[in-house]
């Protein structure tokens, strides 16, 4: 009888619980946010997410394996230097780039790239989407002005759940 209770307890724990690492949540949110954003028309067959530095390449590959965004398959690219950047829909900038963020943002093409990062002050410094955590929960900050410069259209339903910098 005791064994049965333990078994049921563990099963219920498994079914009802939800704890995720910040890294994993951020990685998933990047793709989920993309569904609320319209990009300028592109000839690319796939939706490209480029990671700049950081060691989350394997995590992104695992999460976006066999996934689609805007009906396109997802490709994950990894670069170590912004000069290596090729055509991309999303540029995810790891936090270790915080000290040369301005140089990086200056080299991002001015059309159709959603820049995403968790670097503090990212949205105010000219990035578009900042993902940060408060009381262990993910929060979004969007720089609408820069998004418009990049010709990205953001749905109002996303703006409602984010802090917006205009």
């Amino acid at each position: 009888m005791i064994k049965r209770y333990i078994f049921i307890l563990l099963l219920s724990v498994t079914l009802l619980s939800a704890y995720q690492s910040q890294e994993e949540l951020r990685s998933v949110i990047v793709g989920k946010v993309a569904k609320y954003i319209s990009w300028p028309r592109s000839q690319r067959q796939s939706f490209v997410i480029t990671l700049l530095n950081g060691h989350n390449f394997e995590l992104f590959k695992r999460i976006y394996k066999n996934k689609t965004i805007h009906n396109k398959s997802v490709e994950i690219h990894y670069i170590e230097n912004i000069k290596e950047l090729q055509a991309t829909d999303i540029l995810y900038i790891a936090t270790q780039n915080s000290k040369n963020l301005l140089e990086i943002l200056q080299q991002v093409p001015k059309k159709g790239v959603l820049t995403v990062s968790s670097i503090r002050g990212f949205a105010q410094k000219g990035g578009i989407l900042q993902i940060y955590f408060s009381s262990q929960k993910a929060r979004l900050k969007i720089n609408l002005h820069v998004a418009k410069q990049e010709h990205l259209e953001i749905k109002s339903s996303l703006l409602r759940i984010a802090d917006v910098i205009r």
């Binding site: 099963l11 498994t14 995720q20 910040q22 949540l25 998933v28 989920k32």
Partner: peptide
């Protein structure tokens, strides 16, 4: 049994299936 079940359950969980609102309500580790 418990190990097999929890392993399978954890592996089966795919955060990408959750809505953005749900993701933002998940407490991170």
């Amino acid at each position: 049994l418990v190990s097999i079940y929890t392993t399978l359950t954890l592996q089966a969980k795919d955060l990408f299936d959750d809505s953005l609102e749900d993701l933002m309500n998940i407490e991170s580790e």
